[in-house]
């Protein structure tokens, strides 16, 4: 057991070294100097307080989506639909802001509550299809991503369209979450999402209903024998995961972008899967991994500007890290061999 723990720690260092080595080769492949690329990366994430805040702005939706995905993955509900659920939250936020004539504070609160409910309901569709009919949630959640984007597209061309403009987008929304640091885009959502991560972790670790969720992920058969209602808990985890992803959408509309259109999510829902996987499906670990992944994305964008390295390098590096992380026992067997 001790050996295993030690192996895990060494494997983290190995993964870091291999990842750095691969990035070095990739940057050489582009034909720019490694130091130039690195300084571009550094400037992008730590160059000024604005850059730091941009990392945190990116981190917020990733964290919210990954909290939900972690809960879903705990019951083996492989929710790939966070992106679609995020759009549902964004649609709800836009509708509330456009059609509910209420003071800002009420608009914000109602948008969060309704967003959570509708996102949860949207995620219940694949949840019910899985638990009642046994249809793969992987496929249904992906189909629902395309459908949610389609619905967004239809709405911004019809009832939610900005009539004064020509483009398919909603009018600018005035209601906004408070900005916590002046002159940046950093809104209250980041604090709320960090708090939520800790709350959900506490719920999973310290409450009975949270224990059921974890137990199902460990061993479905044992849980069923112990009298845990499997289907009900899968539905709960599906609903929660959709709800959290939808919150990310609400914050994107009312905190950052203030206009609904197709493309508000830069694949947050998909990237959040990587965040959750690297966090071993633990919401509290998601805080750090989402920060890391957000920094990687923001940094690589700046690396593209400064050194001409395509920003898709971020996705590639994430893929490498996740594969090494998931397969580390097969790829580094020498770390786990029992010494006789």
């Amino acid at each position: 057991m001790d050996k295993k723990k030690k192996g895990k720690i060494i494997s983290i260092f190995l993964i870091a070294i291999i990842t750095l080595f691969i990035s070095w080769i990739l940057i050489l492949l582009v034909g720019t100097s490694f130091t130039k690329a690195c300084s571009g990366f550094y400037k992008g994430i730590l160059g000024s307080s604005y850059n730091i805040s941009e990392v945190l702005v990116k981190m917020s939706p990733l964290l919210l989506c990954s909290i939900g995905i972690s809960v879903a993955f705990q019951t083996n509900f492989i929710n790939i639909g966070a992106d679609g659920q995020l759009y549902i939250g964004a649609i709800i936020a836009t509708i509330v802001a456009m059609y509910f004539n209420l003071p800002t504070i009420l608009v914000l609160i109602i948008a969060l509550i309704l967003g959570f409910i509708f996102g949860g309901m949207y995620s219940l569709i694949p949840g019910i299809l899985k638990s009642k009919f046994g249809i793969s949630e992987v496929i249904n959640t992906i189909m629902l991503n395309y459908i949610a984007i389609g619905i967004t597209g239809i709405l911004v061309k019809t009832i939610l369209m900005d009539k004064s403009g020509y483009f398919p987008m909603s009018p600018e929304i005035e209601a906004s979450f408070p900005i916590i640091i002046g002159k940046t885009r950093l809104h209250l959502g980041i604090i709320i999402s960090i708090v939520l991560a800790l709350v959900v972790q506490f719920w999973l670790d310290r409450t009975k209903s949270g224990f059921y969720i974890r137990a199902i992920g460990q061993n479905v058969r044992a849980s069923r024998c112990a009298g845990i209602k499997i289907n009900k808990n899968i539905l709960i985890s599906a609903m929660l995961s959709g709800g959290f992803a939808a919150l990310a959408g609400v914050f994107e509309i009312l905190g950052v972008q203030h206009r609904l259109m197709v493309g508000i999510s830069s694949d947050f829902g998909y990237t959040a899967i990587i965040v959750a996987l690297l966090a071993n499906n633990k919401p509290k670990n998601c805080i750090l991994t989402s920060l890391g992944i957000a920094a990687l994305q923001v940094g690589s964008l700046s690396m593209q500007r400064y050194a001409g390295v395509p920003s898709s390098i971020a996705l590639l590096i994430m893929g490498v890290i996740v594969l090494l992380h998931l397969g580390n026992e097969a790829l580094f067997p020498f770390l786990y061999k029992e010494s006789k």
């Binding site: 898709s312 996705l315 590639l316 893929g319 594969l323 097969a330 790829l331």
Partner: peptide, 27 residues
Amino acid sequence: YLAIKGKANQTIIGLALNFFALGLTSF
């Protein structure tokens, strides 16, 4: 290899491979 030898979660690895291939081919 990861599924048969590494006994890792096959669905998750497939998912991770999708990200990896998307990043690699775009890059």
